[in-house]
């Protein structure tokens, strides 16, 4: 099998735990998925369900010593990232896989100019002159539609608006032409009209053959951006499939409820369909199906038995005892 045949990213059965004062928390439980070349995969779910921990574990950024990847494999072009030493891992981060965070403030240093930060990052990974690195950085600011890129290179982050900082982050994540970008809620902090600008930018970025794992709690964002969707609930992937299947043929009761509860633009006022209860704490997930106590379709079997993902064809899978393969 040649290099080109290898899957870009394949996560196999990873489980991540945290030691807390109140006990051991399983934040990610036996999660598997893959991201193909030139594909944008969305990971959606409510807060606390394990999205960020999943993302951080790919780059092995789980906070030590309390966090631990207990089991599983993270195959990047077939190579298990969990087997790499720190030096090898550092090479992967930023270069082959880069990350965009929700808060640009978390990744941009307030003490240095945009230009300096970009150039230093480039020089860390590429053996080129400072002048060349400066040119690359400036070109990327232009590509993400920052006006006067030459001048902005000398700006400090606080001199830029939130939307512009987020675009700088995107430029930094893309400028080393990584194979995979992991974006954790990249537009959540932005206003809708600025968010729309970022969507447009990311759509254009597909020309650069970059794949993306896009994490969000917003089904609308998924619709705008993604080819394929992973729905996560309480540490597990409960449904996956291509975007249209998830929106038009949602199968897992959680996916259905999530889609129904979103307030839609509507000309008439009226009650929303809410999901009763709340996301359980990771300390006491139900012993059977994790959605058991909120599920409108729950029955006896769901109380103590955990449903596995069932194949529904066309890459569509759902983890619910009621899901049936009708093909």
């Amino acid at each position: 099998m040649g290099f080109r045949d290898l899957k870009l990213l394949e996560i196999k059965n990873i489980t991540v735990t945290f030691e807390t004062d109140e006990g051991i928390v399983k934040a990610v439980d036996d999660v598997s998925f893959h991201v193909d070349r030139n594909e944008i995969v969305g990971l959606v779910g409510e807060s606390g369900c394990g999205k960020s921990v999943t993302a951080l574990s790919i780059l092995r950024l789980i906070p030590l010593p309390y966090g631990r990847i207990e089991a599983g494999e993270i195959l990047f072009y077939g190579k298990n990232l969990l087997d790499l030493n720190h030096k090898e891992m550092r090479k992967i981060r930023g270069r082959a896989i880069s990350m965009i965070f929700q808060e640009p403030g978390a990744a941009l240093s307030p003490l240095h100019t945009i230009g300096r930060q970009m150039v230093e990052t480039i020089l860390l990974h590429k053996d080129i002159t400072k002048k060349n690195a400066w040119n690359i950085a400036e070109t990327w600011l232009e590509k993400v539609k920052i006006s006067d890129p030459g001048e902005r290179m000398f700006a400090y982050p606080y001199q830029l608006s939130g939307g512009m900082q987020q675009r700088v982050m995107i430029a930094m994540a893309l400028m080393l032409e990584p194979d995979l970008v992991i974006a954790d809620e990249p537009t959540t902090a932005l206003d809708v009209t600025i968010q729309a600008q970022v969507f447009e930018l990311v759509r254009e970025m597909r020309r650069f053959n970059t794949s993306m794992l896009l994490i969000t709690h917003d089904m609308g964002v998924i619709w705008e951006m993604c080819d394929r969707v992973l729905v996560m609930y309480a540490s597990k992937i409960v449904e996956e499939g291509n975007r249209d299947d998830i929106f038009l043929k949602p199968t897992h009761p959680y996916t259905i409820a999530l889609l129904e509860s979103i307030p839609k633009l509507s000309a008439d006022e009226g009650r929303l369909k809410a999901i009763p209860g709340q996301v359980p704490s990771a300390l006491n997930y139900p012993s059977g199906c994790h959605f058991f106590d909120r599920c409108p379709d729950a029955f006896d079997r769901c109380r103590n038995e955990k449903p596995e993902l069932i194949d529904l064809g066309n890459g569509h899978r759902a983890a619910c005892f009621l899901a049936k393969n009708e093909l």
Partner: peptide, 27 residues
């Protein structure tokens, strides 16, 4: 522009067809 920037599929509750208007520039 605000209506068109709402992410998500077109819902049939809205009469007019939404199109992609992307505002330029910052506030």
């Amino acid at each position: 522009a605000l209506i068109n920037a709402v992410p998500g599929p077109d819902f049939k509750e809205i009469e007019h067809k939404r199109k992609r208007i992307i505002l330029k520039g910052e506030i």
